[in-house]
Write a protein that binds this DNA or RNA. Structure first.
Length: 152
DNA sequence: GCCAACGTTGGC
DNA sequence: GCCAACGTTGGC
């Protein structure tokens, strides 16, 4: 089982939206490196849900991969913001997993708090200029972040 | 293949 | 709203 971290802007789609929906297609990622990570996600992989462009930014919850490597339907929607004229049904360019809500953290674990923890050194999220919306997370980092989420 | 111009991300 | 740090596009 692998571990991941996926960013979302809570104004657009928050952990509460995922809790309400139960599951959702993780669509609209338009970056090749992130796309390649999305394609590697396998059923049962755990996904930390991170709120970006939020006040404050930080970890909001946990999800689980429920379907692997599907063609992202938003690339075919001509009227949509994420339409890609170069994508075809036969040869899609963009892919997405489906993720299922697992839990909302009792409190958001802020980016500031993550930065304070030596156990998280090397986490891609914390590297300067890291804008990738989907990143792999080591088992150790994943569990370290879960520890931080426990209310003291 | 280079690279300038432009677009996006995301913290602050 | 600003802007650093990217990524993408397209002319050459």
């Amino acid at each position: 089982m692998k571990y991941w971290l996926a960013k979302t802007e809570p104004d657009v789609y928050s952990i509460d939206d995922l809790a309400r929906d139960g599951k959702t297609l993780w669509t609209a990622v338009r970056n090749y490196q992130a796309r390649n990570f999305l394609r590697e996600m396998k059923r049962k992989d755990r996904v930390l849900i991170y709120h970006s462009n939020a006040e404050p930014p930080g970890l909001a919850g946990i999800a689980e991969v429920s379907e692997e490597d599907m063609a992202d339907p938003t690339q075919f929607d001509k009227a949509g913001e994420y339409y890609d004229p170069k994508a075809t049904r036969e040869q899609p360019r963009w892919f997405c997993p489906e993720v299922r809500f697992v839990k909302k953290l009792p409190e958001l674990v802020s980016l500031d708090r993550l930065r304070l923890h030596k156990s998280l050194v090397g986490l891609l999220l914390l590297q300067k200029g890291s804008r990738l919306s989907v990143i792999p997370v080591s088992k150790e980092h994943f569990h370290a972040m879960l520890e931080l989420s426990k209310v003291k």
